[in-house]
Design a protein around this nucleic acid. Structure first.
Length: 207
DNA sequence: CGTCTGATTAGG
DNA sequence: CTAATCAGACGA
């Protein structure tokens, strides 16, 4: 996609990202998947966002840059989460990519995730969560700040999604976020088997 | 400095 | 249900 694609309000960008293709080319090979689940993080006013209250640190500084760059952070000391910077410069918003439908480089994804070849039956476990997809796609902190229009890690045209196919609900694992807990800023493709598994406490939240 | 904790996952 | 596992964030 060109840079203009990312210059759009964050909640709209989050929805527009559904069905787009995330591609990563590495020396090991190419992997790609369709984005099927995202969450929007809305900047200084959003208690769930790393940029809440205008916090700007080594970790979060990329959120203050222009839209269409990669914001990546480590969580729980062991997993990485891949985000797409959104909003104009100094409006620190982002879209977390939570799940992909694998479409290319599946053997490589399997090896990165499990260290060995595996049956097709486990394909659903490759990219159905933010930490899992980062591992399967070979995304590391080296990709922090990459331009998603032009670099080896990019967003490309995918499939066309109808508004009717998009579901909305509260974001996952943000218990600390007080009133923002309930904001319906998670978007996913209805009935897509690659959407991440949701903790029990969220199961009834639909809409 | 010391302490707490997390935009998660796998395993029992 | 919980352990894993550590950098970021923040208070002293």
């Amino acid at each position: 996609m060109d840079t203009a694609f990312f210059h759009t309000p964050t909640l709209l960008l989050a929805k527009k990202l559904l069905g787009k293709k995330l591609v990563h080319e590495t020396p090991e090979g190419k992997t790609a998947g369709l984005i099927v689940e995202v969450e929007a993080y809305m900047g200084p006013e959003d208690k769930a966002a790393h940029s809440y209250g205008g916090r700007k640190t080594e970790r979060t500084k990329m959120m203050y840059d222009r839209p269409g760059l990669a914001y990546i952070f480590r969580i729980y000391g062991m997993h990485l989460c891949f985000n797409i910077v959104s909003g104009p410069v100094n409006k620190p918003e982002a879209v977390l990519v939570r799940a992909l439908e694998p479409i290319e480089g599946i053997p490589l994804m399997t090896i990165r995730r499990t260290g060995k070849q595996q049956t097709k039956a486990n394909m659903v476990n490759l990219t159905n969560g933010p930490g899992k997809l980062s591992q399967a796609m070979g995304i590391t902190m080296s990709e922090y700040g990459l331009d998603l229009c032009t670099s080896r890690l990019r967003v490309e045209e995918g499939i066309s999604i109808d508004e009717q196919e998009i579901a909305t609900g509260p974001r996952i694992n943000i218990d600390y976020a007080e009133e923002a807990i309930h904001f319906p800023w998670r978007f996913w493709m209805k009935d897509n088997p690659y959407v991440s598994k949701v903790p029990k406490r969220y199961r009834l939240d639909h809409m």
